[in-house]
Design a protein around this nucleic acid. Structure first.
Lengths: 186, 186
DNA sequence: AAATATACTTACTTATTAATAAGTAAGCTA
DNA sequence: TAGCTTACTTATTAATAAGTAAGTATATTT
């Protein structure tokens, strides 16, 4: 893996672990065994670094959506694949989700990043809403409210669940997740 | 209001608006028209300041719980009173909730604060679970899963909703909130 | 009237931040 | 082989961070 890719992975880790204002170029460079200026060489400003982290997250979500399209037979399987994103955050050092982490720091972020964050959230939430809608039409799901509303409840609930897990314990996360799933199946 | 109280209110605002690492003693002092050392006079270290913000939040929640006990006739009214806490965060400058804000910064916080945050979350969640349980036993509510699970879904969903509102729009918050309420009534 | 406490200010320290300028070694390219 | 690019390092900057020691004005107590 190139230094540039390692920087991106470390930046993502630090954002999800400590928040946007909780890490520095020095944290990344010393983790990597290079100098702070080497990080600036690849990403001149912190804004560019975070923007690239968000772009990469969007690319990875698009990949997940394509995998769901080709590999998953039921809509429930697609939803489970989606929720695994959050599981991975929990199991990898109790990260909170990228969106939740950046949302709480939003008003301290360089101006351009809000838009990129919005694009990511809209992509994920609207994909989930579409899966829920089709699953309901085909009798696979049963839930109250619109698919859009239900997608909002799930996205915000999962983001919050990762935060609760930190304060209470990991089991709290799984309890919330299973209940959110139950609420669309019954 | 005393300078000390004003400092506490400003600290709470800054945490919810910018996160723990997104504000400084200077931000507070210049907002107040005093010097940074004056803030250190009242709260020598940032840890003491945040601890006091959390203690105050717990006191205010206890007050809400007592008001609910004396003023609210139905369990639904109690839940609505509880959810109004989140409404107030939204309407006052799109704050995220104190718990969500500090959860994403948790691993950068002075060591002692995790415990105080845990105490606040346990108090709020267990109170809500008890209201939900009694409301269900008396036929006022109808929901799947345990009251504890449902309380977890509501707490994490509301925390996440405030974060989503920042990225999408305030209407997203109200859509999530109404759906979470719907899920316990039906 | 003298001593003490409260609520600050002045002035500072030490450490860290994002960012930049200038230099360098290795490799590729014409 | 001369020039250019890549991927850095060295060294520094201006700004900001939390925190502190010592001084001062005002009010309260003795």
């Amino acid at each position: 893996m190139s230094t540039k890719e390692k920087i991106l992975d470390l930046a993502e880790f630090y954002i999800q672990h400590y928040g946007y204002n909780g890490f520095s170029y020095n944290d990344i460079s010393t983790s990597l065994g290079v100098k702070n200026a080497a990080v600036h060489y690849h990403f001149p400003r912190k804004e560019e670094l975070i923007q690239e982290v968000l772009r990469k997250a969007r690319v990875q979500f698009d990949l997940l959506a394509r995998e769901a399209e080709t590999l998953d037979k039921t809509h429930l399987e697609k939803v489970r694949r989606f929720l695994k994103i959050y599981d991975n955050n929990l199991t990898r050092d109790n990260r909170v989700c990228l969106i939740g982490a950046l949302a709480t720091d939003l008003y301290t972020l360089p101006a351009g990043l809000g838009h990129h964050l919005n694009v990511l959230v809209v992509a994920m939430k609207s994909w989930l809403a579409e899966v829920l809608l089709q699953g309901k039409e085909q009798g696979e799901f049963d839930f109250d409210g619109t698919a859009d509303q239900r997608a909002g409840v799930i996205c915000s609930g999962m983001a919050g669940a990762l935060q609760m897990a930190r304060i209470l314990n990991n089991d709290e996360y799984y309890k919330i997740k299973s209940q959110l799933l139950n609420d669309i199946i019954k």
